[in-house]
């Protein structure tokens, strides 16, 4: 396998009984790439993402994430990736500092590493004064940035972001994407799902899943050209408009 490929899957398939949720998908994601994983509701995105994160075994096909095999080395994958979703990312009833400590311990960082990285993180996020505040009491925008930083405190090769900006105000959404840009420019691979199609424009490459298969995969510019569309929104409608599932 090429060292530059942080994610590489070939014929990845997941069946539940007679239902094929993910139907033989293949793609590679490079180091430092921001890869947008789009699809209509019910297209199979979540199932595919669960396999990539080592949470679900594929029925067929193979793949590797961060250098580990998704079928046989699921535990190693979990230790070497970051994950953040809109629904769950931080414990609301713990303070900012307690959340950082909890996640860094789960990821196996030493006390010294935790202290060092936490100090850098609080400084970068300008959150030093909020260290001892309960997460439930900090504004949404700060929570988002903190959640991303906590999910990447062990400096994983790849971070999976599952609709990280749903319902978030336009300013916070943009600040969040600046964090993604910075992580990517520092060599971290970012695998992200979103329903905001303007955010799809920020990705280096986009895949669009329809009914379990990848129907389109390219840079936003190339997709717009291929489908003769002005925006990614139009591309998405054109590609996903014929979906059978999710109706």
């Amino acid at each position: 396998m090429n060292d530059d490929k942080v994610i590489s899957v070939d014929g990845l398939t997941k069946r539940f009984g007679s239902f094929t949720a993910v139907d033989s998908i293949s793609f590679d994601v490079s180091k430092g790439e921001i890869f947008g994983f789009l699809g209509a509701n019910g297209a199979g995105k979540t199932t595919a993402m669960r396999m990539l994160c080592g949470l679900s075994r594929p029925t067929a096909g193979r793949g590797s994430v961060a250098g580990f095999d998704i079928a046989t080395q699921a535990e190693d994958i979990k230790r070497h990736i970051g994950y953040m979703s809109q629904k769950f990312s931080l414990y609301e009833e713990l303070t900012v500092r307690e959340n950082v400590r909890l996640f860094s311990t789960i990821y196996g960082l030493s006390d010294r590493e935790t202290a060092e990285r936490a100090a850098i993180m609080f400084d970068r996020l300008e959150m030093t004064s909020m260290r001892d505040t309960l997460v439930s009491d900090i504004p949404t925008g700060w929570k988002q940035k903190l959640a991303f930083s906590v999910a990447t405190i062990h400096r994983p090769a790849v971070v999976f972001l599952d609709e990280p900006t749903g319902g978030v105000d336009p300013l916070t959404r943009r600040k969040f994407w600046e964090l993604i840009y910075r992580a990517s420019s520092e060599g971290m691979t970012v695998f992200v799902t979103t329903h905001y199609l303007d955010e799809a424009e920020y990705c280096h490459r986009i895949s669009i899943m329809v009914d379990g298969r990848i129907k389109a995969l390219d840079t936003p510019a190339a997709l717009k050209k291929e489908y003769g569309c002005r925006t990614m929104d139009e591309v998405f409608r054109s590609v996903a408009g014929g979906a059978v599932r999710g109706q």
């Binding site: 509701n41 329903h195 409608r237």
Partner: peptide, 13 residues
Amino acid sequence: DEPTTGVDAVSRS
């Protein structure tokens, strides 16, 4: 109240 939250672009439209 937020009938289209979490809904994909095609279903939203």
